[in-house]
Amino acid sequence: MIQWMLILSLFFFGLAITILLYRIIWGPSIPDRVIALDTIGINIISGIAIISIVVDTKSFLEAILILGILAFISTVAVSKFIERGVVIELKRDR
């Protein structure tokens, strides 16, 4: 029963990623695409967590942490590029 529920939740995470791909390709604006990419990252993290429950291992937890760090940094970087036009400033004028 639990196994069946885990497989079903994996199916729904795949469905959510497919719907988010629509938002990335045909998204009206750039911030929509950024949010969609971040949400895809979170869905992949959840999928990895469920896969590591299904196959009963702890080896995927590092992958979860690295994906979380990369999703956070990429979202911050693209947001800063949209907001200011520069990713890493040489010197703040404040």
Partner: peptide, 27 residues
Amino acid sequence: HHPGGGFVAGLVFASAFVLLGLAFDLE
């Protein structure tokens, strides 16, 4: 004995510097 190693550690270490550069500035 587990997933990891020098290459991934170096990349994660460098990503911390990227985050510092994003929040503050290069100076």
